[in-house]
Design a protein around this nucleic acid. Structure first.
Lengths: 146, 146
DNA sequence: TTATAACATTAGAATATCTGAATATGATTA
DNA sequence: TAATCATATTCAGATATTCTAATGTTATAA
């Protein structure tokens, strides 16, 4: 078992995330998380045209999210980065907690930040003073924003 | 401090990932991870036109990745889901490990999977037999695929 | 009162992405 | 040899995203 690692530029990181940001590709990853599958199986599970599945698989393969080995005439795809699938699965539970700090908390954060910030670093508001009390804007709620 | 949580459909999950999959938005998140910033500061840090930054901020806000409070005439944006930023930052280290199992390992996985699989679940190759030895395809390497 | 600062909003062109249809390939099987 | 299976590739239209430029808004400063 060979393991490699690498850090990513913002650009590469972004293109990876956007690659993952497609329901069919996420579904493929979910499927493969339970074990290797050949293309035809995946296609039937997802009820998508074969060509389409193949395209998504190729896209995933280009970023080495998945890989395959050949078994006779079957191509058995598997997750080349299982850790990624695990992170993705855990993302809703671990990453989506919404925080709404009190203005005072945020202000304290900002003060702490100013204190720790090097002289050449830009500050919040570039030194402008806080006047009045921080306020929350009116906030019409939408489906995903709660 | 208010905390909420929710699970997501594939679709929502995908659209969130794709929202994150943009270098400027990732950069914004990186910046905000160090503390709240007003729009002008972010704009200067990223060296992007103000309107563009504003648009990205709105997109992030629509999914409640960021939020803001008002401080005088400044809008101080901050991360509404700090856990997400942390996960994103850790993704390269934790998620990008590439695995290349030996064919035997994968085969063993598949067998174990078959063993654990309920009767109605589709199997790899739908019961087709493994003939010969699993092989690795020839693999021309590209930038991101290593 | 006019100007300016800090941001938002809109419109439209430029790009990128997605999908399905058609076709190709290469290995088996009849 | 012809047919079939498993999968890949190509291409064109549809759709979605992103960027720029121009303009709007609101509060404060001159």
């Amino acid at each position: 078992m060979i393991i490699e690692m690498r850090s990513l530029t913002l650009r590469d990181h972004a293109s990876l995330l956007r690659l993952l940001g497609h329901p069919v590709r996420l579904a493929i990853i979910q499927r493969l998380a339970t074990g290797p599958r050949c293309v035809t199986d995946i296609q039937e599970l997802l009820e998508k045209p074969q060509a389409n599945v193949s395209q998504h698989l190729m896209a995933l393969r280009a970023h080495r999210i998945v890989d395959y080995y050949e078994d006779g005439k079957l191509r058995c795809y598997y997750l080349a980065r299982p850790g990624l699938a695990k992170l993705l699965a855990g993302l809703p539970a671990n990453g989506y907690a919404v925080v709404r700090p009190s203005p005072e908390q945020v202000r304290r954060d900002a003060r702490r930040l100013r204190g720790e910030t090097a002289a050449d670093m830009p500050r919040n508001g570039r030194g402008r003073q806080w006047r009045g009390r921080p306020r929350w804007p009116a906030r019409p709620a939408t489906a995903l924003s709660r």
